[in-house]
Design a protein around this nucleic acid. Structure first.
Lengths: 145, 145
DNA sequence: ATAAACCCTGCACCCTACTCCAGAGTCAAT
DNA sequence: ATTGACTCTGGAGTAGGGTGCAGGGTTTAT
């Protein structure tokens, strides 16, 4: 290796270090790279991937968004709201507005679900044979959808 | 057919009617039955499934919960949260409490995501290039997850 | 009584999102 | 200079969640 002679660039990491720090496996990181969810990082002379640490938060974001029911496709869209010098601000804006509505709907549904469960828990000591399925009932009467 | 002679039981539906009314395909309904997410309905003499209309809201709930990032397994657990003579109150209660925490975490994450997007939209002048839209920054710095 | 529209089972297949090799090269420490 | 931990590519395999027939009965309208 020839580079890295004078200054030690301590802000680059191997894929293994990124994996350990992000809770995402090496294989998955490479998979996300193939799928375009994270940028192709520069390589060393020998071909090793060379990451800047900020890819870690991107990976955390992906993990979080997945657990909220977004597909990798949707996550890609969310992420691309930043990196598109081509598209104009209006496009991004309306995209973002759509996502906001989507998210608001999700929050709503979760709040109704939570309410149903809270009701179930507080009614618990009574222990009588309550309704067949409290969560379903709560969701039904409030007309989810 | 011999039954159904005197009284017309109008509150039963075929699988096709359920499918059309719930937005879930026939195949998927049968799949959910195999997986135990919905009860096996009674059958006609000829073997046709005979549903009561309330299965529709159960299917809607499943669809909703899926979009919120719950797996079919988790949905099964959510649906089974009720007091039955078999399970004791403590079990149900602690199960429900775990689900509540889970849901609260999801709501939190969604709210942070929404905030990031709202910030993006309000920071967006509505035209021009988007080289430095604040969305990813907002998401990264807030340390989602 | 015949066609169109349904429904049945069983099984193969598909998509998404990974996960796991094999075979080979690289790096750090001893 | 060798060992052991690490990385590379390419490709096959897996789990979860459906989807699509084929082959064959059933219902309903005409």
């Amino acid at each position: 290796m020839i580079s890295n002679s004078g200054v030690k660039a301590m802000n680059i990491m191997t894929i293994g270090q990124i994996a350990r720090n992000s809770g995402t496996s090496i294989e998955t990181i490479r998979f996300y790279e193939r799928e375009g969810l994270i940028e192709k990082p520069p390589r060393t002379e020998s071909g090793y991937r060379n990451y800047r640490p900020d890819v870690i938060s991107r990976l955390s974001f992906i993990r979080e968004a997945k657990s909220l029911g977004f597909s990798l496709m949707e996550i890609k869209e969310l992420l691309s709201l930043k990196f598109s010098p081509e598209t104009n601000c209006g496009d991004v804006r309306s995209q973002a507005e759509k996502k906001i509505l989507d998210i608001e709907h999700k929050i709503d549904s979760l709040q109704r679900m939570k309410q149903a469960l809270v009701k179930l828990v507080t009614a618990c000591p009574g222990s009588g044979p309550t309704s067949e399925c409290p969560i379903l009932e709560a969701m039904e009467t409030k007309k989810l959808g």
